[in-house]
Design a protein around this nucleic acid. Sequence first.
RNA 1: GCGCCCGUAGCUCAACCGGAUAGAGCAUCGGCCUUCUAAGCCGAGGGUUGCAGGUUCAAGUCCUGCCGGGCGUGCCA
Length: 591
Amino acid sequence: MGKSTCQGMENLRQQLSRIVGKALREASGLADSEPNVITASRPQFGDYQANGVMAAAGRSARKPRQLAEATVEAIGEAQEGDAQGIIASAAVAGPGFINLRLSDAALVRHGNAVLGDPQALIAPRPKRQKIVVDYSSPNLAKEMHVGHLRGTVIGDCLGRVFERLGHEVIRQNHVGDWGTQFGMLIAYMSELDANAELLQAELEDLESFYKAAKGKFDADAEFAERARQSVVRLQGGDAESLQVWRRFIDESLRHCQDIYQCLGVDLQLSDLDAESRYNDELPGVVSELREQGLLEESAGAQCVFLPEFQSKDGEALPVIVQKSDGGYLYATTDLASIRLRSRNFAADRSLYVVDSRQSLHFEQVFAVARAAGFASAQLSLEHIAHGTIMGQDGRPYKTRSGDVVKLADLLDEAVQRAFALVSEKNPALDEGERRKIAATVGIAAVKYAELSKNRMSDYVFDWQTMLSFDGNTAPYLLYACTRIKSVLRKHAEGSAACRLTQLASGEERSLLLKILQLPEFVELVASECYPNLLCNYLYELAGSFMRFYENCPILKADAQVRDSRIALVRLAEHAFEQGLALLGIETLERM
RNA sequence: GCGCCCGUAGCUCAACCGGAUAGAGCAUCGGCCUUCUAAGCCGAGGGUUGCAGGUUCAAGUCCUGCCGGGCGUGCCA
């Protein structure tokens, strides 16, 4: 029991790294040599390969192949007499690779252990961390648009992954609810206030509400003046202005929550970390910087100059924390929030899932926070940067242009297209079910399109691409799931008692191996924060399952083979459901 | 000017922090449904990884320079 629990904590790769690493250190005499175990680059090389021998050979002046032979020998000795040994063969290849093949018995044993306890497929990390994930963060003055999609779904995925690994996650939606533009909106609201119905109707579409207010602001000097006064009153704490502002914010938040619910994104009102929350703390941030001698006045503004932010000709780059008119900036708020996350939350990691265009801003804020002691040494500050969604003209979408695609419209379109497709593919289903399927498939397709791309790259917005249902897409994965569900439904005897007993075909073996590799990719996503790594894995898992499904009869096989294959199908179901759940995607019974 | 990111098949993207013959999908062409859902599977063609050097057993990956693109750069967020 103790042994199997211990093995459950380690994924296959970690087990191999431990075994091969120990052998390599014995053979090389280098206490710090790393085995560098990765999945095999080609199936004919085995399941995994250790690439670390050649580097170790270089450092110890040994011949690589000779050291590899010695390492293989040490592996053999370590496994001798161990019936639970997981390595079936270790062979030296090429300039000094060690090709590793896992024993079928070990794979079957692991698989059956997961069947008995599906949650064991992804074991929690031994060290529980407290992780802040700052994501989505729309500006409440306007409606959410496509530009918010990436950060929202990536942040949601990361939060799910951390929680699944046993970490404590603090979600923070750093919405923009403060600033000069709200004066304009409040003034416009006050004008419409006489007509409650009209106001409510206008607020239905925040985008046009913003445009209407902006239009009036630009055209009407008297209104513009009232708008400016509104800002002053608001920031001065005037009760009436605050009340109008509050109504607008509540309305805008309702729009956001609708979107989150539609997207299946786990962000609640309790996760809000609005800008306005820090109003009272900003003077304290500045004074604390002053006390530490970090503050310098430059052209009337309060700045922090740090040595690491200089241009080559020695020109210093300031981080402005207070404007010459006394106003505070984005950087000031972020410093206050870092202070909170470090001192009050005592977080281990604080992640900012924000557009990569703000990378300099975060570099600067992080550096100031360190210098000022707002962030303790053990808090890891990480900007999880992502690329920009561009227009067809290669330029990023701009809210002013009026060409923004509203997120609500995008999601509607996705569901509509999915409905047309499911109706075409499966007309026999009644309309109600087709609608439900379309809702899942359409939203999943949009989320997966974002998650499956390397988060750093920009891309051009295109309906075809984003709502594609072919290839490496959510519908492909969901389709694999429906095949699984269908088989399990038709297996009248019930599948609960089935156990893996054999790996007769290559398809079965590679599917089982793939299933057991899920935790490796979950951990990778947690450390690197690239959700596309998990998507790539799931796509390969789906391909592996499809090949198994096409080549291996399940229900029609002889009883013993059938039961073993049913067990494999159930394992695949667990891997898909758990993997997709981490992406925030639910599976379907049929589609 | 300076800084960061990027350049991979016609198109959209991968490539597990230096590994063996750079992989998928879309599109094109050709096979597979009286058998568990064909939203699928199998096969074919398609590449000097922007260019030129360097580092080493090994470079799409690291370093330098150049070309091309994007973004940012003292009072927006």
